[in-house]
């Protein structure tokens, strides 16, 4: 755990000093919202449509972070150093998933208000706790699967291509559950609590993928 904390601190410090990933993610999110506004030609979104727009926007921004996640390790020999160190290799998974989770959380701190501002979905303030809960579970899924896909893609020749084409189908069940979980929160008569079924599906999906990732991550780091 200490190793994981050290790597996580290194990643956050690196992000804080270079500001490489997060500004790009938030910018992409805002631009995507604007694109949706013009693509759909609607000023106000509600219900399932609003939920879909928000989820897809977050997903595309997540893809940026997923592509960048291991690039520093790959380019500056961090992998070799990590493999030489006498530490548990799963620590890398926890650290990177933690970093990705935090990136997503910060992204949402900006993207959700931007979404509220630009596309004014109804009842967002009322449903905010429910929305936070759904996004929390969704971020765990994005973080776990994203780290896993990124670790596969970073060693391939065309890593910017392999990441998204494997990542998007793998994230589809999480995307379905997230969008369906958020949809009822943004209708005009929203009760404010997300549907339990989709929370359960999301949690189950997170759990299964986390277990798979813990079991298989070692094989992705071998040199």
């Amino acid at each position: 755990m200490r190793t994981a904390a050290a790597i996580l601190r290194k990643d956050l410090l690196l992000e804080l000093r270079t500001l490489e990933t997060l500004p790009a993610m938030t910018l992409l999110a805002v631009v995507t919202l604007v694109i949706f506004h013009f693509g759909l030609n609607l000023d106000v979104l509600s219900g399932q449509l609003a939920a879909g727009v928000l989820t897809v926007t977050l997903l595309f921004s997540a893809m940026l972070a997923i592509n960048r996640l291991f690039v520093a390790e790959r380019e500056q020999g961090g992998f070799d150093a990590f493999l030489l160190a006498p530490v548990d290799r799963t620590a890398m998974l926890f650290a990177k998933a933690g970093a990705l989770f935090l990136f997503m959380a910060v992204l949402e701190l900006i993207a959700v208000p931007a979404f509220a501002l630009l596309l004014s979905p109804p009842r967002l303030g009322h449903s905010l706790p429910g929305l936070v809960l759904v996004l929390f579970l969704a971020d765990i899924g994005f973080a776990v699967i994203g780290t896993f896909v990124s670790a596969i893609a970073v060693h391939t020749r065309a890593r910017d291509l392999i990441g998204p084409i494997i990542g998007l189908p793998l994230l589809l069940p999480a995307l379905i559950a997230t969008a369906r979980g958020i949809g009822p929160l943004l209708t005009r008569h929203a009760s404010g609590s997300p549907p339990g079924r989709w929370l359960a599906v999301l949690a189950l999906y997170d759990l299964v993928n986390a277990l798979l990732a813990i079991g298989l991550f070692d094989f992705l780091l071998e040199e």
Partner: peptide, 13 residues
């Protein structure tokens, strides 16, 4: 769609 990426993945390593 997921399995369609199996061959590109292999090809790029």
């Amino acid at each position: 769609l997921l399995y369609c990426t199996y061959q590109p993945l292999r090809f790029s390593i």
